[in-house]
């Protein structure tokens, strides 16, 4: 079911840890421009799947395709450089760096080459100012501007989540993989994070795959939802359709 509008897909991917097949012959495909949800009970293999798609783990068999290119077995940083950026279940800010600096790390830049960094600063100075301007605009958008010079480690749970989203956007992704982006956010603040995810998808036309436990959030955000159970993707559709799907019901009830 791979079509020309598929941005990320995997076919028959398997990864076993010892005797446990965390992901077992799973296939999925994600349409460009959508917000797709990935749900499933604990231990269904969602996080392993995200780790395979983003290159943190290498599948034992199967194929991963991103933007028509086969990226199976690519190292994580190479997949990220192609525009597939992920976030983590545990917030992963650079604690002893300022909020602004956290954002400045994200883009791929000339000044990361050794010779340019040390011996030819003029080669990256202008780019640095452009990135600063972009980073500051993003901080404004996410309401973190007044914290620009604060150490990221001093932020609250919700602010860290926003920072992570802003940092991911700074890398100019074509697609985002959000692994439980609401974990650690105070209940009253989740709406803000959700609004930003919608804005990222619609305003910037970034495709989003989101792993989340809360069905309300998934229903609110996602047009398409994938259900994983025991390492396999067993169903795909809108929440409405999934509620009527006997396999899904069975898995969630049993």
């Amino acid at each position: 079911m791979t079509t020309s509008d598929t941005v990320l897909s995997c076919e028959n991917v398997t990864l076993a840890f010892g005797g446990l097949r965390a992901v077992d012959d799973a296939s999925l495909s994600i349409q460009r421009g959508t917000i797709t949800g990935l749900i499933g009970p604990n231990g269904a293999g969602k996080s392993t799947m995200v780790n395979i798609l983003s290159g943190q783990l290498r599948p034992q068999s199967g194929r991963v395709t991103f933007d028509t290119a086969d990226v199976t077995g690519f190292q994580a940083h190479r997949i990220a450089q192609r525009g597939l950026i992920r976030t983590f279940q545990l917030s992963s800010e650079f604690a002893r760096m300022t909020v602004l600096e956290n954002l400045m790390v994200a883009p791929r830049q000339t000044g990361e080459r050794f010779w340019s960094a040390v011996f030819y600063r003029r080669g990256w100075r202008d780019q640095e100012y452009e990135l600063l301007a972009r980073a500051e605009n993003l901080l404004r958008e996410f309401g973190l501007f007044s914290l620009a010079d604060e150490y990221a480690g001093n932020l609250s749970g919700g602010q860290r989540r926003l920072l992570e989203l802003a940092r991911a956007l700074m890398a100019e992704p074509r697609m985002l993989l959000l692994d439980e982006p609401l974990a650690g956010v105070a209940p009253g603040r989740t709406g803000q994070v959700i609004d930003h995810i919608v804005q990222i998808n619609q305003g910037r036309s970034v495709t989003v795959l989101i792993v989340e436990h809360s069905m309300e959030v998934i229903e609110q955000l996602c047009s398409t939802v994938l259900v994983m159970i025991q390492g396999q993707v067993i169903a795909e559709g809108s929440m409405q359709q999934l509620r009527e799907n006997p396999r899904v019901l069975e898995a969630y009830i049993s």
Binding site: S54, Q56, A76, H77, R78, A80, Q81, I85, R86, T87, F88, S92, E93, F94, A95, R96, M97, N102, V105, A106, R108, R167, A168, A171
Partner: peptide, 14 residues
């Protein structure tokens, strides 16, 4: 410095 602070996150940014 980002690698020092959180290797996984820095790698995930490319």
């Amino acid at each position: 410095r980002a690698l020092r602070e959180n290797e996984q996150a820095a790698v995930a940014l490319g």
